Simulated scan of single mutants.
Amino acid sequence: MKFQGSHILSVSQFDRDAIARILDVSAQMAPYASRLKRCHVLDGAILNNLFFEPSTRTRVSFGTAFNLLGGFVRETVGEENSSLSKGESLYDTAQVISGYSDVIAMRHPKMHSVSEFAEGSSVPVINGGDGANEHPTQALLDLFTIQSEMLRFGKSLDKLNIVLMGDLKHGRTVHSLSKLLSLYNNIKVTMVSPKALQMPDGVISTLVDAGHEVVVTDQIAGNLACDVIYQTRIQQERFASKDEADLYRGHFSLNKQIYQQYCKDHTVIMHPLPRDSRPEANELDTDLNELANLAIFRQAQNGVLVRMALFALTLGVDNKLTDYEKPVTWFTNKN
């Protein structure tokens, strides 16, 4: 895959070689993210962050990633704060904003909207999530996290045994991750969810057609003895009402007792965050916070590395990083 100048819109763009390159460059970003050194390879470049749907981690990590490479960040948050609220088309917005930018990261509540926007952009556009469709950068950081966590146990992405649990119908993160996992060998995917929130048939078919074992169930008991549990929240914003979402909230909570009863000693817990900690939901109990295999915060930090890598690759500076290093001159306890 040619990265330089390309949009990053869907995980369907990637083969295993492209993914390996992204994960390799992501690992190279660790010294900069941990403040062991600085890199100003994108000094003077401008990222426009266009987030027309609520976001904390994705929006901030995109900006942080660009800053860590020396670039400047401009942000528009909320459709009501843009000319879209005045009837401007995505194409027209893209034509204008790309003229102000070197790269754009975008999130929008409408499926396929980021691809529509990219058609009008003269600079690379990176999809930060388009409705219930895809979240390619989250899937890449999830894959990077799984690879990193499995290395501790002498395992790899091939022959992975993973459980996807929660709202699998609306959770774009699990849709994108499943598509990436289909590229690997001998994967077992157990999908645990209420029957009404099961994984879309098209996603299941992608895994099955690639020769992987898929188990679909609405039962936790007997189905969590795996390498990775990937928990997702009930996507309230995708339901017609809060009352409808409440029908499913809290049915698939994971706590220390359930972990010890059903999981393996090495089972890693992941979640794209935010986790819903309200009593009626409590997807991942706080009694798991001291568990060494709880990877959710390492997972979030890995988002910065992967997004740094995507900026470096799309702007063609991935082989110039060490030429633009500087020492860190302030106190930091990150390293």
Rank of each mutant, 00 (worst) to 15 (best):
E134S: 03
I46D: 04
L321A: 00
S176M: 12
F144S: 00
N48C: 14
Q299A: 08
P31D: 07
P54S: 05
I258F: 12
S34T: 13
L313C: 13
V304P: 04
I220N: 08
I104A: 07
E325K: 00
L157S: 13
Y259P: 05
T137K: 01
D265C: 07
L315C: 09
A295V: 04
G63A: 13
N302L: 05
H271W: 09
N293R: 14
S55C: 05
R238N: 04
L310G: 00
C226L: 03
H271F: 09
H7Y: 12
V73Y: 10
H212C: 07
L164E: 08
A240M: 08
L42D: 02
H135C: 01
R238F: 04
L164M: 15
S85P: 00
N319F: 03
A295N: 07
Q299G: 07
L157M: 13
T267D: 10
M111I: 12
S182Y: 09
S241Q: 10
A33L: 14
L180D: 01
T93M: 11
T190L: 12
N319L: 09
G99P: 09
V123K: 02
D218Y: 03
K169R: 15
P136Q: 05
N81D: 05
V192M: 15
S61G: 08
G171Y: 02
G5C: 12
Y259D: 06
N133K: 00
I296G: 04
V304I: 15
A33M: 14
K110T: 14
F117E: 03
P279K: 10
V96W: 06
S113N: 09
G120P: 08
E290R: 14
G202V: 06
H266F: 11
L157H: 12
D17N: 14
F51V: 04
H175N: 10
T145C: 05
I187H: 05
F311E: 01
S148N: 13
E75N: 11
H212G: 02
D17H: 15
L254A: 08
V174C: 12
L141C: 01
V41A: 00
L180A: 05
D209K: 13
P136D: 10
G211E: 00
F117A: 09
I8P: 01
P194R: 03
R35P: 01
L313A: 12
L157W: 13
V114R: 11
G129Y: 05
R275Q: 12
